[in-house]
């Protein structure tokens, strides 16, 4: 059974014909070419596919494409402004919070959701919030630092810049 869905993705209206079983993440990756949203598991646990639907963080593997019909989706591709990284993305870069980069889009989308609901999270709150996002490279240490720094900058405070400055 095929159905045409219309939704807003990263601020732009899009339409696509999908099967009933097509997942939102498949629509994004395979039909819309937005391959920044990743698939790391088949049990909705890894969080590599986290996007925002109507401003809420959602694992895009848990939603059928048809359920997104009429809704607004933000993916990692829509977070930066042109070549200027969002402060949370910049904090990830500044704190080396990514290595292979595969979990990173989901981590950033989750981090933005956390900070939206809790602008000044403690280390413990950050660690507990990340229950739904797996990373195999970083040991989470730098992700936790990055989210704290991203949140600080988003609050208008200076970046702690734990790792200091490099020679140029």
């Amino acid at each position: 059974m095929q159905k045409t869905v219309s939704l807003t993705v990263n601020g732009k209206p899009v339409s696509a014909t999908v099967e009933g079983r097509t997942l939102l993440v498949q629509l994004l990756r395979e039909q819309l070419g937005l391959t920044g949203t990743h698939v790391g598991c088949d049990t909705s646990q890894c969080g590599a596919c986290v996007v925002h639907v109507d401003g809420e963080a959602v694992k895009a593997c848990t939603l059928l494409a048809v359920q997104a019909d009429g809704h607004s989706v933000l993916t990692i591709e829509g977070v930066a402004t042109g070549d200027t990284l969002h402060p949370m993305q910049e904090a990830f870069r500044n704190n080396h919070a990514l290595q292979c980069g595969f979990c990173t889009p989901g981590m950033v989308m989750s981090a933005l959701d956390l900070v939206k609901n809790n602008p000044n999270p403690t280390e413990r709150e950050i660690r507990e919030y990340l229950e739904g996002n797996l990373c195999r490279c970083t040991g989470y240490h730098n992700i936790v630092l990055a989210i704290a720094e991203g949140a600080a900058v988003m609050r208008g405070e200076p970046a702690p810049n734990v790792y200091g400055t490099a020679a140029e």
Partner: peptide
């Protein structure tokens, strides 16, 4: 030195 590969990974 901050990583040169990060921009592409952070922007999808």
């Amino acid at each position: 030195v901050r990583r040169r590969e990060d921009f592409r990974f952070l922007t999808g």
